[in-house]
Nucleic acid binder design. Structure first.
Lengths: 331, 331
DNA sequence: ATTCCTCAAGTAATCGATTACATCATCCGC
DNA sequence: GCGGATGATGTAATCGATTACTTGAGGAAT
């Protein structure tokens, strides 16, 4: 197990093993650069002392942090959890630690995060930051899910336009001729892309289309439920910009006495874990969050390792429609 | 805005301002220890150069990391998200960065995490780690939600026994006389405490009680639904060890053609965000996750600041029952 | 036997900040 | 006008690793 004395330095290990600190350092980093006898003496000394490298000292000398930072617009959004998990898994395999931060902690702090040398690279889940800040970081950045063309960084996303088209086609094939889209925040690139996709797909299909404002949250879905209920001509198919919004809409609409999917078919977006277990279970666009996280992390790690992979193309991962109970044939 | 030249060191700033590095350092850390004229010269130089402190160098010299680490048994568990958010918020306010890691990355790595000086303290959400490792970290640790008496660390939790008692009393008052508990993982302290609480509360009330195995997940709830349905004498009240489990149970039981709460009342545990929006909405024990995170972070920060707050007592936060639609009077 | 090369190991510079200590000017009271 | 306190600033040691460079031993080739 090793005695755990307070502060063991590399020089203590070296002294115990009767070698120089250089040899200890080499033994730890490149065991094959050291003779067998020495190596074993050092390894024994490390075991006995319970020596642990001091990360700050190593980071300072090597000018790297062995750490990546995840920036997300809202840590409590459950949509992100499995992305975090996937990123962490990849990072851990590459011996990198993971930091997380909410991206709404203020310009000053955000700018600092990318410049104080605590992170080697950044996974960015927020397309709404000032490009000047993002490009001011002198670090490799990879965007996930959201993207912003003004950022000088590759992205891993699904094709949101095509995805929303799948949803529209699905409803149209079920016979729906009047569709409603509950959109996301007005300034969010995902929300905009999905809305535009909705408009062009409905236009192409020649069905009636309308839009109501939302912000991805459960609450916004519930609020729109009342607006929908108050309409004279209620759209029979609703496509939401997020699953949470869809669940909010459905639950509220049912509380108002309507039946889903009898009276209104609802499609979500993301396929969060509960979509499948909701009642009625939710037809939605499946976004492979684990894969997005994994690919993003791998991409970032590649950029860290291989400095010259500077120009990484945007990567597109596949999304598909999952048909469940919340949508049915129009009456 | 400041020109962002590659690597500005403190000596560059000092040179530009015509002062020593000591003065620059003091200006940044203790502006009031420096004369007004100097201070302004230095601040101007900092602005012009866009200087950012090198964290590794400072950490090395000060022997601290300005960072805390959150360890959770499963990052993709949505239960943790709002705890992360709360911890991050407190940490950010105290100028600390936040690292996260899954606690299942292997003994070796976990032990290292607490010893390489990258974190000043640890927020632990997993009571299942080897006490030798936890106590081997030479860092302040605070346990959240789960706790392990073998750890030499304070904890912030709800009173799980009392909480489960609330659930039992609720069902008993509604006239239920045969209760089932779907427990959590056999070796989990929360699961054990809740199960024992269930047994003693049902015993005290003199109602029939039985237990089925689960593991907190949606899937386990769904699986138990089949076992329940196959019984001759079906318990009319079910208390689950987690909300996810409860939602899994309810959705599956409904798919099997039963009605909730008509034929079976179900109580969850945690009050995750979707509990309120599920259909039927879920009666559950509300666990104030944001507050747990906040209190835990504050406690840890206090331990970091005030070295002699070594003996912090376990803190208990209040949990209560939220009555919704998934429970009703027994027939 | 001499030269040259290879390889293991040690010496000491280095990363970039903080801060103990030294220095010097100023100002106080007596 | 002088000893001493006070406070601003500079000098240089320090944190604990990595690594460029140096040294010296051993082996191969001639």
């Amino acid at each position: 197990m090793g005695v755990m004395n307070s502060k063991i330095r590399i020089s203590d290990v070296a002294a115990l093993a009767g070698v120089s600190t250089a040899t200890v350092s080499r033994t730890l980093a490149n065991p094959d650069k050291v003779g067998k006898a020495m190596r074993e003496k050092v390894q024994e000394a490390v075991r006995v002392t319970g020596y642990q490298i001091n990360a700050a000292a190593r980071d300072l000398r090597q000018r790297r942090a062995r750490s990546i930072l995840i920036l997300a617009p809202n840590l409590s959004n459950t949509f992100f959890s499995s992305i975090f998990a996937a990123v962490q898994e990849e990072a851990s395999a590459a011996d990198l630690t993971v930091q997380i931060s909410d991206s709404n902690i203020g310009r000053e702090k955000i700018a600092t995060l990318g410049q104080d040398g605590r992170a080697d690279g950044i996974i960015l889940l927020d397309g709404g930051l000032d490009p000047e800040i993002v490009n001011g970081w002198r670090l490799p950045v990879v965007q996930l899910c959201e993207w912003n063309d003004a950022y000088d960084a590759p992205s891993v996303c699904i094709d949101n336009t095509a995805a929303v088209e799948l949803a529209v086609d699905h409803l149209v094939q079920l016979g729906h001729r009047d569709l409603l889209h509950i959109e996301g925040p007005k300034d969010n690139i995902l929300a905009i892309t999905r809305r535009d996709g909705f408009l062009s797909a409905t236009n192409a299909s020649g069905v009636k289309a309308s839009i109501m404002a939302g912000d991805f949250t459960i609450q916004s879905g519930a609020k729109v439920a009342h607006l929908w209920a108050a309409l004279d001509q209620r759209p029979t198919g609703v496509i939401c910009a997020s699953d949470e919004c869809a669940l909010g809409f459905i639950s509220e609409v049912m509380r108002l006495g309507f039946d889903v999917p009898e009276q209104v078919s609802v499609v979500g977006f993301d396929d969060i874990e509960f979509a499948d277990r909701f009642n009625p279970s939710l037809t939605t666009i499946h976004q492979p969050r684990g894969e997005i996280g994994r690919q993003g992390a791998q991409c970032l790690i590649a950029m860290l390792t291989n400095k010259d992979v500077a120009v990484v193309p945007p990567k597109e991962v596949h999304a598909h429609l999952v048909t469940r109970v919340s949508t049915s044939r129009a009456l």
